[in-house]
Design a protein around this nucleic acid. Structure first.
Lengths: 189, 189
DNA sequence: GTAAAACGTTGACATAGGACAACCTTTTTT
DNA sequence: AAAAAAGGTTGTCCTATGTCAACGTTTTAC
């Protein structure tokens, strides 16, 4: 099993080596090109991805074609369309690599079987859900009732990696502003 | 055990009557007045609440004193500050009853012990986390890049109960607009 | 039942940030 | 290496929504 995933399991579920060896075959490594899609809006999401290197984003497109980035994940994190994975309904979001990205892929059927049968995966899943929830909540909480300057400052303080590694266009769509506004704001700082 | 909670357990965890009788003593009934607080910002949240009748909201207050309602729950739902419950850190949100409200209260220690030891509660918790996550995601997704008229229409379509049972002031703070704007928009519909 | 407070509506005005456009720079393609 | 495409910056203008204010109505408190 890849050391990054091992670390994740040890840290969040106290899993021992024996269990990890048993789980290892469920995770298949694959590398995607920069800008390549792991999932497109309208498809049913069938996999959970653990990022070994690179990064990906979840984004939606509204009726005017404007992109809205909702989550950006780097190496060492799980990322997928949980809403589609959980409900089995078509995703309303896309998953796209922002850099050349290597992931470990587990199929949802295996994943949910293991959630039921294997306590360490049950714990990991609980952890993933809890932190996904908390992250989402924090983002709503921190963004609601703030102007765009405050949002950029928030990003600088809380997720500086996003500002340094990700293009302005994507950052703007993550902050809910236009690239123009972001550009103007950056010159103010 | 109260029939509403029973129904919840049967529906989401297939729990049988024997288990429900065992779980029953952990849930204590209590009634709160309209506007009464179950939790104040800065306190550590120690309980999970299941609403039997009435409704409550979670809201935050920003530095200018502006309220921001993030979740409104009616009878038949669990509600608490999960972020504080999970992390054990002080909550940044308030929980307040919007009507005279009767809840079943379970202490977080009991709750998390049961999550570990009792599969039906484990399943319930998973379900709560999953739906909390999905609800939050949907709200972000549906609100981002929409103007306030679209938000009101969204509410009318997706949560009409909120518009009919809850005061304009609270609804406005849920939509992230001022009561003035909401008032103007309502006259347009 | 009366006073006080909170809430809701509407108007006039101010402003943050989007739309459009031009231009420059960087990246990608061949 | 040249051409094309994408991304970034900056200017002007416009619109949606917040702010301030006045006033009427409903709810709460004594």
């Amino acid at each position: 099993m890849h050391p990054l995933l091992k670390e994740y399991f040890k840290f969040h579920a106290n899993a021992d080596d024996k269990i990890l060896e048993r789980l290892s075959p469920y995770f298949v490594e694959k590398t995607f090109k920069r800008n390549e899609y792991l999932l497109r809006e309208g498809e049913v999401c069938k996999h959970n991805y653990f990022i070994i290197s690179g990064c990906m984003r979840l984004f939606t497109t509204n009726k005017e074609g404007i992109e809205n980035t909702r989550y950006i994940a780097f190496e060492g994190k799980f990322g997928t369309s949980f809403t589609s994975l959980i409900t089995g309904l078509p995703a309303f979001e896309n998953i796209q690599c922002l850099e050349k990205t290597t992931v470990l892929i587990i199929h949802k059927d295996d994943f949910y079987d293991l959630v039921e049968s294997e306590p360490s995966i049950n714990k990991i899943y609980r952890h993933i859900l809890e932190s996904a929830y908390i992250t989402t909540q924090r983002r709503i909480y921190d963004f609601q009732g703030t102007d765009s300057l405050e949002r950029v400052q928030w990003l600088l303080k809380n997720q500086p990696k996003i500002l340094s590694r990700i293009s302005n266009k994507v950052v703007a769509s993550y902050l809910g502003i236009t690239p123009h506004t972001l550009s103007r704001l950056k010159s103010k700082l």
